[in-house]
Design a protein around this nucleic acid. Structure first.
Lengths: 201, 201
DNA sequence: TCTGTCAGTTAACAACGTTAACGTTAAGAC
DNA sequence: GTCTTAACGTTAACGTTGTTAACTGACAGA
């Protein structure tokens, strides 16, 4: 049975090659510039080959971003956060923002592109990432530090605020910002303000 | 000179027709579905004609959104807001969100599409819209209600938070939300939390 | 040795943004 | 009244995109 295994391995290898080439293009030039032909050129295969490994372009980019959700989940590792529940939340927000600013194109696709697709399954990194936020909010609430009872709503509120800040910063170049360029610490300020807005008192 | 005037008028009319047809497509089906050919079909002209009125597709959509910035500015009319500076800010945030939720496709193009283009000129509705926010934050600060001194940074923070909430709500359908569907009042909650996060005390 | 599967190819399709080349119309110059 | 010129419209094409049908060749298993 070593032959079919080698076949499997080879198939996996070229799938990997496609993903790597696509990621390179995606990170440096964005979604539009990832054309099937350019990816094919990069790996020195014909465009049709890609369709033997991915259903279509969206499926390819989806696979790319599936991997990135795993990276996001890693970046949010609670083990690396301080003990104080509020300080933990703060560091979580900053880690999330750091990921977004370091991978703006992936971030756009992950959180800014409407999907026809079904929800993330419960064991997916995407689902789990939100679970981390939710858990930390629940902890802060259990510690009596939050003003509200609805953990989900509070977690979503925090997420929304940080999401908004990184969207603005990654969409507009500084000189395109309305009136004045973005405060250099806009993301931090947003994290702080949104958390403060949920605190008791 | 009545003739050249009629010519002008006719030219303006077809420009209007193009814009209206494009807006219809844009609102109901989104940016991708606005193809030059479909717009041309809708107004019963050849695609080439559009190029006599707009430089290219982006120029067309840009013109569309220029009109929408004017609508946004209208929607933010401070005259319709209550007197209390904090309550004013709150109503401003809600009005902004209402505009975004009612015109999701335009909103995406206005605030979520990276532009090569230069900043909005000072007298443009886009620039002025942020001016409204800025002014209300300045008023609240003058009333001694805010904790911080940097008016621009605070205005941007508020903007970021509301922006984030409407982005999430317009990007994901409820069943695609991670873990649980969005709190029905997520936008309100975000407005409230972000303002609260800037208050003195 | 034959057969069927599977990974890869070429060549084409339809749709897109865009443009060159070509009418047609009519305003303004003489 | 005739000529020129500009404006506005057309058709037909170019190059690019995602995608697919139809073929080719290798090779495991009977």
């Amino acid at each position: 049975m070593g032959i079919t295994e080698r076949r499997e391995r080879e198939k996996e290898e070229i799938r990997r090659k496609i993903l790597d080439a696509a990621r390179e293009l995606f990170m440096t030039e964005g979604y539009d510039k990832v054309t099937m032909r350019r990816v094919a050129d990069a790996i020195e295969y014909s465009p049709t080959t890609i369709y033997h490994h991915f259903e279509d372009k969206d499926d390819l980019v989806e696979a790319l971003c599936h991997e990135d959700f795993a990276k996001l989940l890693e970046a949010l590792d609670p083990a690396q956060m301080p003990a104080d529940p509020i300080e933990r939340l703060r560091q979580l927000g900053l880690a999330y923002a750091r990921f977004a600013l370091q991978n703006p194109n992936q971030y756009r696709f992950m959180f800014l592109t409407p999907r026809e697709e079904h929800p993330h399954p419960e064991d997916s990194p995407g689902y789990q990432s939100f679970g981390v936020v939710r858990q930390m909010v629940a902890d802060a609430k259990a510690a009596g530090r939050l003003r509200d009872d609805d953990v989900d709503a509070m977690a979503q509120t925090l997420w929304a605020c940080v999401h908004g800040a990184v969207c603005l910063v990654t969409t507009f170049r500084p000189e395109q910002f309305p009136c004045v360029p973005p405060a250099p610490d806009l993301v931090e300020r947003t994290v702080d303000a949104s958390i403060r807005g949920l605190l008791k008192e």
